[in-house]
Design a protein around this nucleic acid. Structure first.
Lengths: 194, 194
DNA sequence: GTTGATATTGATTGACTAGTCAATAAAGAA
DNA sequence: TTCTTTATTGACTAGTCAATCAATATCAAC
């Protein structure tokens, strides 16, 4: 059975299984057994490739952030001009892929973990900085010095609405979240928030 | 030792100990032992009064929501007119008492739990509905039909900024979060978000 | 002063968990 | 062929945890 070069395959399978398992249970309280079984291998092998439970979690979180970064990157590539780029960033944040239960579950548990794990805190910092800098980059030519504070508000609204939408499983009658953020963006452009 | 009428005292002690322990560890992954020891009693007694771990958690969450509701209520009592009332609601949300580590920890874990526990979901719903209705009540006389959507944006910004501020332990150079929300409120009043 | 409710705990049970390790098997190199 | 590296697992260890229970002590009522 032992084919060579299994390491990347096994690692990817474990990362995916971890995310799925977190999504299925809703908590970070998943065992290595559950993850390994879902990934189709023994717990010993999971330990062999990752060393420990914490490292498995961190790898899973890194993966989620990487996927999100790719989506934003792709959306930005086709956008022309600051305004279109801003809209692309906002819409990418609310893409339906981000609302799959396992992704929402991973994010929420990510927040919890960021309280106690320095590595998680660092990862979260990277995400927040990247979003902030993306926003400021395209807000600057539109609103000048107010870009920084406008970006803080827009980023906050993105996170807050994501939290609220991610948490309600029921169909919502409300405006799409992205449109709410774009409404705030409009106000920022008119300078009425100062 | 056994004095009568201990039940409410023990229950309150356990609720407080639970919140403190969640704040100290950062996770919901606290044991009944830890909670009971912190509350100065045996684990058996904790089970005796609450039945199980889940019920202890729910009682703790109910307590946090009740305290928050009281704060909002008190802030509203001294506010005169819709605008002052809106400001009071916003400022109450960002009162420093809400940023104590154990409160932030409880909230984040509350969000996680709301994914899998129907009771937690219900409690969260109550909080969200109450905030929304508080906002709409005082926005209506100011912006009319736009009140509902404006409230959704403001509530989202409150939650999002709370999340971001609660998560960063470092001192922040940025604008106070409440002022960001008030900036959005100003834009809503001028009708520039539509 | 007996009965019954309340308060309280130490000890125990049974289930589960992260991580280790020795053993096995294939693949490639020498 | 023999040796080394990679892949893989079953069995095991040592520990933890929620929940139960029997036992004990106090108070109130009758």
């Amino acid at each position: 059975m032992p084919k060579l070069g299994m390491e990347p395959i096994r690692r990817a399978a474990l990362v995916k299984a971890t995310i799925d398992e977190i999504g299925a249970t809703g908590t970070l309280d998943v065992t290595v057994s559950q993850i390994a079984k879902r990934a189709g291998m023994s717990t010993a092998l999971a330990h062999h490739y990752f060393g420990g439970k914490t490292q498995i979690f961190l790898a899973a979180m890194r993966h989620i952030l990487a996927v999100y970064a790719d989506e934003v990157h792709a959306a930005l590539a086709t956008a022309d001009g600051p305004l279109a780029r801003l809209e692309a960033v906002v819409r990418a944040g609310f893409a339906s892929s981000n609302f799959r239960p396992e992704v929402v579950g991973a994010w929420l548990n990510f927040y919890v973990l960021a309280q106690s794990s320095l590595d998680a805190q660092r990862l979260l910092d990277i995400y927040q900085r990247r979003l902030h800098s993306n926003l400021v980059h395209d807000l600057r030519p539109l609103v000048g010095d107010r870009a920084d504070q406008a970006a803080a508000r827009i980023a906050g609204l993105i996170d807050g609405l994501y939290l609220r939408r991610g948490l309600q499983q029921s169909a919502h009658f409300d405006l799409p979240a992205a449109d709410h953020v774009l409404a705030l963006l409009r106000a920022e452009l008119k300078g009425t928030t100062t």
